[in-house]
Lab assay of single mutants.
Amino acid sequence: MEVRTIKVFTTVDNINLHTQVVDMSMTYGQQFGPTYLDGADVTKIKPHNSHEGKTFYVLPNDDTLRVEAFEYYHTTDPSFLGRYMSALNHTKKWKYPQVNGLTSIKWADNNCYLATALLTLQQIELKFNPPALQDAYYRARAGEAANFCALILAYCNKTVGELGDVRETMSYLFQHANLDSCKRVLNVVCKTCGQQQTTLKGVEAVMYMGTLSYEQFKKGVQIPCTCGKQATKYLVQQESPFVMMSAPPAQYELKHGTFTCASEYTGNYQCGHYKHITSKETLYCIDGALLTKSSEYKGPITDVFYKENSYTTTIK
């Protein structure tokens, strides 16, 4: 009895394709271990004539594949690729409408935090270190965002349907971005203890939790000093293409032309909904596939993004 075979390709990165001759009487799992086709788990399936010449994702289970996976995804987590594939199996079914010149995501599976993050990423200057993220990001900007969303979920250790947080998501993504040249110098002034300067680099240099107003941050924000008295913390120097200011959701007025974009969060910790506000020729609110415009805006804002380049204080 002759062994019926077909020729397929296996890959971990969709760049390096490895030619395989597979036995049609055995499952993919018996031949390769966990195997995925377009995100779908085909591990328990036997090869079919229609699979001839198709590319299958496999887990990096030998040295060659491990090197290829690390170079593309910059992670050695053995569960990463499987999590990416199972997320992709959902995100490829989502709709990605162009809204006001940006790629958004039609609401499904509690994905409003991903839509808000995706919209924000198209408006701030950011370059990702893992080629996987950078490639998928370019495709997302062009309207094909399924891979990018699935990668975000995998890097953030999230599953489809789980509630997510924009600030946490951005923080994970910033860790995989090139923020080497970003720098922030802060000064804390206390009447009792004097003053202390701190220099922050990388992710810490672009994120701040405690106030939404970048102007206020430049002037000074009140913080408790270690001595128990009130101290003032203010920005001395900022070198970065953008800054992200966050605070627990509270009524906040966004003035046209003073910011790049913002995240609105309605609801409580267990259950809520994100919308995205962007400042173009007027203010726009993007909620999944829905767009509304207004000249002014007041609502429960939790993150505001500002364009920056270089700032030095005039406070002496």
Rank of each mutant, 00 (worst) to 15 (best):
Y138G: 13
L291F: 15
K106I: 05
D38I: 09
L88R: 03
Y155F: 00
K293N: 08
C193W: 02
A177L: 01
T258E: 14
S86K: 14
N129P: 04
R184D: 00
I223V: 15
I277T: 01
I301W: 06
I6C: 13
I45Q: 14
V304M: 05
G39D: 11
V21F: 14
S294E: 13
T55G: 05
L65K: 08
T211I: 13
A150Q: 01
H18F: 09
T266H: 06
I277M: 09
T226C: 10
A142G: 14
G101H: 00
A262V: 04
I286M: 00
D165M: 05
F174W: 07
Q222N: 09
G33R: 09
Q98H: 10
H276S: 00
Y214E: 13
V304G: 00
I301H: 01
Q238I: 03
L88T: 00
V189A: 07
P130L: 02
L17P: 00
L118F: 09
D180R: 02
P78D: 14
L212Y: 08
V236S: 04
A40P: 06
T35F: 15
L133F: 06
F259D: 04
Q251V: 08
A250L: 09
Y96N: 10
S263M: 02
S279K: 00
Q197R: 11
L121T: 08
K201A: 06
G161N: 03
L59C: 14
G161C: 09
D63M: 09
E239K: 11
S240F: 03
A262K: 00
D77N: 08
H176F: 11
A250N: 10
G29P: 07
A231Y: 01
Y172K: 15
S213I: 02
G33E: 06
L151A: 01
Q30M: 12
C193I: 05
K219W: 03
Q195I: 15
M26N: 14
E281N: 00
G299T: 01
E125T: 09
A262D: 02
P224R: 14
I286V: 04
K191Y: 08
P60L: 09
S86W: 15
T55E: 06
L173K: 04
G143S: 05
L37V: 11
C156V: 06
L102H: 08
F305G: 03
N187M: 14
F9S: 13
E52R: 11
S104M: 00
E71A: 12
R139S: 13
K218Y: 05
E215N: 04
G164P: 00
Y73A: 05
S279M: 01
L212N: 00
E125H: 10
F9G: 08
A69S: 11
N268Y: 06
L212R: 01
K255G: 01
T260V: 15
Q216N: 07
A69E: 07
S79G: 13
N89A: 12
Q122N: 04
C156E: 00
Q251L: 10
T10F: 07
Q270C: 12
V189R: 09
L235V: 10
P130F: 04
C193T: 04
F128L: 04
S263C: 10
G257V: 03
A140F: 05
F305D: 02
V8D: 09
G194R: 05
V160G: 03
F128D: 00
Y113G: 02
L114W: 02
S294D: 00
S263W: 09
G202P: 02
V22W: 04
L126W: 07
Q197C: 03
K275G: 06
G288C: 02
Q123I: 06
T43Y: 09
K46M: 04
G267V: 07
V8Q: 01
T282Q: 09
E52A: 12
I152N: 06
T226N: 10
A231R: 03
T169G: 00
M245Q: 05
C149F: 06
H18E: 06
D62E: 11
S213Q: 02
C225V: 01
F242S: 01
A146T: 00
A136V: 02
N187D: 07
